[in-house]
Amino acid sequence: MTQAVVVPFDAAHAPSLARLYLAARKATFHWAPPGRFALHDFEADTDGEVIDVALHDGEPVGFVSVWMPAHFIHHLYVDAAYQGLGVGTQLLERALQRIGRPAGLKCVERNARALAFYRAKGWRFVAHGEDDLGRHHLLAFDAVTPP
C-alpha cells in the first residue's frame, strides 16, 4: 500500500489534475468517441465541488470531488501507476468523512474494475441509468463506519 498524503485542493494542483483526469478517462472509457474528453474538462466538471488531492512525494496522484448538497461523490480518479496501492481507498475514506452517510455515486457499467472496488468497500446498487458513456449504476453507501 502506498501511503499518499490527502490534502484539500489548491489551485496549484489544477494543471496536474487536469492531465491526470484526461489520461484516466481516455484509458478507462476507451470506447468513447475521439475528442470526447479535453484537458479543460477538469475545471468545468468539478466546478462547485469540494476536491481532495492525493499527493505522493508532493505530486498529485489522484483526486476525489464531491457535490456536497447531494452527498454525492462525483469523481474519483487515481493515476494508473498508483492504482491498486490504496490511494483510491484513502480518497474514498476522505470523501466519506466529508459527506457522511448516506452517500451516493455513479459508476459506468463497463468500468468493471471500479465497480468491483466500490462493491468491495460496501457500496450497494440502487438504480441504473444511461448517459453518453453507456449504462451506469447508481450506488449508495449507508454504513455508519468508513469502508
Rank of each mutant, 00 (worst) to 15 (best):
V50M: 08
V50A: 00
H13W: 00
S65E: 05
V7G: 01
H56I: 08
V108C: 08
D45T: 02
T145V: 07
H30S: 12
A32N: 02
Y82M: 13
R98I: 04
A27P: 01
A24N: 12
P8H: 09
G35E: 02
V66K: 02
Y77R: 06
R36T: 15
M1H: 13
A12C: 09
Q3M: 11
C107F: 05
A80R: 14
Y118R: 08
Y77H: 15
A23Y: 00
G86M: 06
S16I: 05
K106P: 06
H40I: 07
L76Y: 08
E49D: 15
D142T: 10
G35W: 05
Q3Y: 09
G35H: 02
A44M: 12
D10I: 04
H75E: 14
T145N: 04
V50R: 02
A81E: 14
D142S: 03
P102E: 06
A24Q: 04
R98V: 05
V64N: 01
H136D: 06
L115S: 06
W31A: 13
L76P: 05
A44V: 15
P69V: 07
G88F: 03
A127F: 14
T145I: 07
A143H: 12
S16H: 15
D45Q: 11
L92R: 02
P102K: 06
R101T: 15
F37Q: 10
P147E: 09
F37N: 05
Q83I: 14
G122N: 00
L96C: 07
T145W: 03
P34I: 03
W123L: 14
S16N: 15
E93D: 03
T2A: 07
V5A: 11
D41T: 03
A54C: 03
V53I: 01
F9S: 07
L96W: 04
A12I: 08
W123M: 11
W123T: 07
